[in-house]
Amino acid sequence: MRAFAILLRRELAAFFLSLTGYVVIAAVTLLIGATFVMLIKNMGTEAFPLPVTEIFFNSSVFWIIVILTAPVITMRLFAFEKASGTYETLMTAPVGDVSVVAAKFVAALTFYMVMWLPTLGCLLIVSHFTNQAHALDKGLLGGMYLGIFLSGCLFLSIGCFTSSLTRSQMTAAMMSLAIGIIFFLAAYAAYAQVIPETGPWRTASVLYYFNLFRQMEDFTRGVADTRAMIFNGSAMFLFLFLTLRVVESRRWK
């Protein structure tokens, strides 16, 4: 636990004291800002029955940000340490493998959540200047950030895993991008219902759980769906478990 806290601090410092971290935050803020500007412009001319959060998080921009930033955030975690050799000094210090994996993942997740904070500013503007007074509703906000958190758990654990496999950050990023896009496509297939219910091996019903879009829709309406939590949580545990096995593998390779 002590080692975990020390490592977490070090990993967080690596995120927040590096230029890369701020470039990512700036890029994401720019994307969010641009989308909101367009959204507000449209809202000025048409009447919208939906809350502004729901419209934003159902747009493809949200998913583009998640799928692109997760590999960028996580590619560094193990691959960079392996390439620079600091992995050896880290793993010969009296720390457990679990603390190392946990500290790296939690740091990435923290950075990811901070990266989404600018959305709060956008919502503030919306609630202040439009008649959507419920844009800052507690339930809506909680649901929205819970949804963001769960998407982070899933996509960052994938990135954590691929980073542990290689010493090349580029390879790690490409692999986690590929896996991320597979999840995205599965979600799209489920959302658009391209596979009929009567298809073989109950594909459609399995695919139902992969429907990340619908999950996010629920969360942004303020509905906390436990199925989504369990799906994302178990995917996260699976990928973190795999990461741990890879880290431990040097003992029996």
Binding site: A14, S84, G85, T86, T89, T92, P94, G96
Partner: peptide, 19 residues
């Protein structure tokens, strides 16, 4: 773990975090 606490190890090429 007991061994790691008792040794100071400097690997080949002395890797350090540059930042």
């Amino acid at each position: 773990d007991d061994v790691r606490r008792r040794i100071g190890y400097m690997p080949e090429n002395n890797p350090l975090p540059g930042e």
